[in-house]
Design a protein around this nucleic acid. Structure first.
Lengths: 71, 71
DNA sequence: GAGAATAGTAAAGGATGCTTGTCATTCTGA
DNA sequence: TCAGAATGACAAGCATCCTTTACTATTCTC
């Protein structure tokens, strides 16, 4: 599942470690999610979306929904 | 994590089996999610939201977001 | 009452998420 | 240039998700 985590993190100049601490997960989990090795659990997806003030749909994108979304 | 799956299903008069087939999961998985024994994976949460034409936030609700949402 | 449909639960096993620990590589700045 | 920060990746182990199979209880319909 595609996600915009790396972009959102970069916009805030956070390291993976910074983000991991804010989400209360390990740095390796952040890295694995960013690099697409696995998807977060639903509770973690909620924490991620809330941290960035976005909806889950804004952060993660199911393949079927990837069409021509602006920017 | 709270969810409105049972209500959404009932609104459509679907059995757990009906819903399970539409989601391509087992009836027991639907039952477990409805009764709160566990949360769906993120990909399954997306399928559920898409099936009902809602956002994930509309179907599932993190504890921190449970305040005074209308109806 | 018999049979079907629905729902709740359990056990066992496979798949996935998350951890700590470790190593290699790349980036950054003094 | 070189040290430290940052990143990517892997392994082992535990937790969680999801499966199949199975059993039970309730309700409904004939």
């Amino acid at each position: 599942m595609e996600n915009r985590l790396r972009v959102l993190r970069a916009e805030r100049s956070w390291s993976q470690q910074d983000l991991a601490e804010r989400l209360e997960v390990s740095r390796q989990s952040v890295n694995a999610i960013e690099t697409g090795r696995y998807d977060p659990s639903l509770p973690l997806a909620f924490r991620i979306a809330e941290l960035f003030g976005l909806t889950i749909e804004d952060v993660f994108e199911s393949p079927s929904r990837r069409s021509s979304k602006a920017i």
